[in-house]
Computed example of a mutant assay.
Amino acid sequence: MQALTQWLDRGFRVLLVGLMAGMVTAVCWQVISRYALNDPAAWTEEMARFLLMWIGLLGACYAYREGQHLGV
């Protein structure tokens, strides 16, 4: 059972890192397209907002699982 829990925790960390990387990529593209190309992409703001909500919810669950305090 402990091996399964460790495997799930590792997968959860990878998921959170992937979501965070996706949000950073979307925000960077938003900045580049707005200021360098003068044509802001409409989907990046919505995607960043969506990913931020999921990162907050899943990150709070992960912090609780690890016994950490989520400081905001």
Rank of each mutant, 00 (worst) to 15 (best):
L52M: 05
G22E: 03
M47D: 04
M1Q: 10
M53L: 15
M47W: 10
E45N: 12
F12Q: 05
L37E: 07
V27F: 02
W29L: 15
W43F: 14
E45A: 12
V27W: 01
L37Y: 08
I32D: 03
A36E: 05
S33C: 08
M53W: 11
A41S: 14
L16P: 05
L70M: 11
I55D: 00
M47S: 14
L51M: 06
D9V: 09
W7R: 10
A48K: 01
A60I: 05
M20G: 04
G67L: 07
E66D: 12
Q2H: 06
I32S: 04
L15G: 00
L16K: 05
Q6G: 07
L58M: 14
E46I: 13
A60K: 03
Y64R: 14
T5F: 13
L4R: 09
Q6K: 11
M20P: 01
H69L: 13
G59V: 02
A42F: 04
F12M: 09
M20I: 06
M23Y: 00
L8T: 07
Q30P: 02
G71A: 02
P40E: 07
R65H: 15
F12N: 09
W43L: 11
V27K: 00
E45G: 15
N38S: 06
C61R: 05
A41G: 10
W54P: 01
V31Y: 01
G56V: 00
L51P: 01
A36R: 05
L37N: 04
G67N: 10
L52V: 00
D9T: 13
L8P: 00
M47A: 15
L70S: 09
V17F: 11
R34D: 06
Q6R: 14
T44W: 07
V14P: 03
L52T: 00
M23I: 00
G67I: 06
H69M: 10
I55C: 05
Q6C: 08
R34H: 08
V14W: 09
V17Y: 12
C61H: 08
Y62H: 15
M23F: 03
A41K: 11
N38D: 12
T25I: 09
G59K: 02
T5V: 10
W54H: 09
S33E: 14
M20N: 07
A3E: 13
A41N: 15
V24H: 04
W7V: 02
L58W: 02
Q30S: 09
V24K: 00
W43G: 14
